[in-house]
Design a binder for these strands. Structure first.
Lengths: 168, 168
DNA sequence: TCAAACTTTCAATTTATTTTGAAAATCCGA
DNA sequence: TCGGATTTTCAAAATAAATTGAAAGTTTGA
């Protein structure tokens, strides 16, 4: 397979993967493009390679920066901004886990906490099942949250070692 | 908080969580509704509770059945179909992991395999970075895939015990 | 076999999301 | 401070995804 062909295929693939995970296609494609680029790229280069508008390119690069997946690379003597992606996929994955945990799991736990304070006077079968389910969900999500939290802090502590054994 | 209010809040919350994970809002809401219902529900009841059309209800129930999260519950003497959801959230989570792994990770690994067979004659910096990155990604994804695979098979083997220790 | 009960399909519509592109804002050297 | 280079914003347009609802299909009891 030729380089250009493979590159396109990868950008495509990464893009549609993103789509399945609630990440917009273009953002994932910009990420893919930066991942495989040995040098940092300007907005123009991104526009050119992906055939997207300036506004779109700008927006998605900004968002990738918010996610902590991409950084600005200011070159001396250049007024333009260049961008590069964290190349260590493991680190990038941890970064994504960390962000999603913060953005989604934490609020959900919060909501579950509120909801659980259900009127105890209501003892219908429905209300009982509901309360039970809330406890159950909170428990499982809480545990998942705990693992992800540990995992995302795990760059150099015991859990990493433990996980690595599982991964061997 | 009153039961009806809490119920609504939960259905809402579960729905918007789904949205962030590439699952359509209604499907997640139907799932939420069935999760907290102590009895199985008919299509009519689902339409009524969520204020959605018959077609929509049918489609999303079908999809939940495909995901292995919901089953038909045929009541003797009733011609209608009723539906109930797996109530053990841990099992449901495993089911989701299993499905997504099959639907997304496996195809991605496949694509990466193809892409890696890159024309070795091309020794530009770009091509080298690309090949390196493909190897890196395949490695991380392969490991994640391995963990998820083990996890989803883990109902009663060693990994479950090991994970449980991490979770304590 | 018929017909009512029920489920599924799918083209048309509605709703939500993404993208564009040009104007406004910002930045920076002289 | 000015003016060109660059980035950011955002209303409008384009695209994508979800939803409806009625027609078609299926199942079942008599």
């Amino acid at each position: 397979m030729k380089h250009e062909e493979a590159k396109l295929k990868f950008i495509q693939g990464w893009g549609s993967l993103g789509t399945n995970w609630g990440i917009n296609r273009t953002m994932a494609q910009v990420h893919a493009l930066l991942l495989i680029s040995p040098t940092s790229l300007s907005t123009e280069q991104i526009m050119e390679e992906l055939q997207i508008s300036r506004g779109n390119a700008n927006m998605n690069v900004r968002e990738l920066i918010n996610w902590g997946l991409v950084r600005k690379d200011l070159k001396p003597g250049e007024r333009k901004e260049f961008f590069y992606a964290e190349k260590d996929i493991w680190k990038a994955a941890m970064q994504i886990i960390k962000e999603r945990r913060k953005r989604e799991l934490e609020p959900l736990m919060q909501v579950l906490g509120e909801i659980k304070s259900l009127d105890k006077a209501d003892d219908s079968a429905e209300a009982k099942e509901f309360t039970k389910m809330m406890g159950n969900i909170e428990d499982v999500i809480g545990k998942a949250d705990g693992v992800l939290d540990k995992l995302s802090r795990a760059q150099d502590n015991w859990l990493m070692g433990t996980m690595m054994k599982l991964l061997k």
